[in-house]
Amino acid sequence: MTNQQINVELNAQMSELVHVGDAITRLLSALTSTSDIEATIYELQLAVHEICANIIDHSYKDAENGKIKLALSLTDGNFIADICEQGEAFDPDAVPRPNLEDGQIRGYGIFLVNQLMDVVEYTSTAGGNCWHLAKQL
């Protein structure tokens, strides 16, 4: 099994989000390419992308020059993304589950992350805030 890690630091700007997908593609490039793997890569890209977009939208709402640090790893088929920032703390429990039957303007992001990943954890300390996402591939 491949054990790899990629660290990426992003400026907290929407224009930087494209690098999230590139980093995940690079991390998983050693896996044999099948349509299933391509779908998995897309889902991981979307989950990490949604967290980063959420950080830019909420944690760094009033901040310029914010940074997002991503540590992406693949260990024995387990994908892990640790995503840390120094912005305002976020309360994931305060995000209502979207009423999907009616169509929602907000709320799809965290819902999708929860659907796409096995583990979604958030911790906020004086040193910063971190999201921990994991999925067994």
Binding site: Y42, Q45, L46, Q104, I105, Y108, G109
Partner: peptide, 11 residues
């Protein structure tokens, strides 16, 4: 690639 912000624009 379509994310939640794109979906929100459609809704």
């Amino acid at each position: 690639f379509l994310d939640s912000a794109g979906m929100a624009a459609l809704v």
